[in-house]
């Protein structure tokens, strides 16, 4: 580790230049984080700004939050997004955990094909995935709306759950599973009483990752959703194209706070899982 940090400067340096190198590193990191956070900071600040256009500060207000809560369409879309996120993350986690276990424990024909398909889902650009979903839904006659959205979201979350859980399974002692089997537990019982609890941290991270991916998605959703079930990205897309919408700032701030809370809770769960 020391060797690497030294690489930033000349190979035989004094203490002074090492300190300079370190300062330079922090400066660089700081600049990147500034780039990442400046736009978000603007959103958060403007969500409390009296001025609609947010070009200058005109005093503190809660009115955009009030407006947000009164904007029925936007709130509906928000709850739809949350519902899809929760459901998709949950089903993807269930399905993905089972898949990871199947890949870990059993040998079957098409095993390589299975992991290949998961890999394709993970690596395909969103736009290509979106098109494949649209094509299959049309071919199967599935109406664009809640179900098409849910299926698409579950599918694009799957590989991330599988990878997370699979890695965890690989880490732990396979003898435990054999021991459970020897004690007479069925395969299913072994899975639910031994494997699931042990991989819980990975399952939680998989869920969290899926929830994030689902909430963040724009491209797939805009292809597979219909009028009966509008979700946030679609609504926000037309709102921000229409113009300055301070409610969107309020919404973004709300989402950000929600996610920080979620991550902290998840960290606590994970830590608990680790200490056990």
């Amino acid at each position: 580790m020391i060797a690497i940090s030294n690489l930033m400067g000349p190979s035989k340096e004094g203490k002074g230049s090492a300190r300079w190198a370190k300062a330079g590193q922090w400066l660089f990191l700081g600049a990147i984080f500034f780039y990442l956070y400046a736009p978000i900071a603007v959103l958060v600040v403007n969500s409390f700004n009296q001025s609609k256009y947010g070009h200058n500060w005109k005093g503190f207000t809660w009115k955009w939050y009030e407006k947000l809560l009164n904007n029925q369409n936007l709130m509906d879309a928000f709850w739809h997004s949350i519902a899809i996120g929760l459901l998709a993350a949950t089903f993807a986690t269930l399905l993905g955990t089972l898949m990871a276990y199947a890949l870990y424990r059993y040998n079957f024909t098409l095993k390589r094909v299975t992991s290949g398909m998961l890999f394709v889902v993970m690596m395909s650009p969103d736009i290509v995935l979106a098109i494949t979903f649209l094509v299959i839904f049309m071919a199967l006659g599935i109406h664009l709306g809640f179900w098409s959205l849910l299926i698409a979201h579950i599918t694009f979350c799957l590989p991330f759950v599988v990878i997370t859980v699979y890695a965890r399974l690989n880490d732990f002692d396979g003898n435990l599973i054999e021991a459970a089997r020897d004690l007479g537990a069925s395969e299913a019982r072994t899975f639910f009483t031994v494997v699931m609890p042990m991989s819980m941290p990975a399952i939680v991270s998989g869920w969290l990752l899926s929830f994030t991916l689902s909430l963040d998605d724009v491209i797939v959703s805009s292809f597979v959703t219909g009028p009966s079930y509008e979700i946030l990205p679609i609504r926000v897309f037309s709102m921000v194209r229409v113009g300055v919408s301070p409610e969107v700032n309020a919404l973004a701030t709300g989402l950000l706070i929600l996610s920080v809370v979620l991550v902290v809770v998840a960290q606590l769960i994970l830590r608990k899982g680790k200490s056990q």
Binding site: L43, V240, V244, V248, L255, L256
Partner: peptide
């Protein structure tokens, strides 16, 4: 930042 939808972040950049 990923927990804010990427569309909203794009909007921030627009501003």
């Amino acid at each position: 930042p990923f927990w804010t939808n990427s569309l909203i972040r794009t909007y921030a950049i627009k501003i």
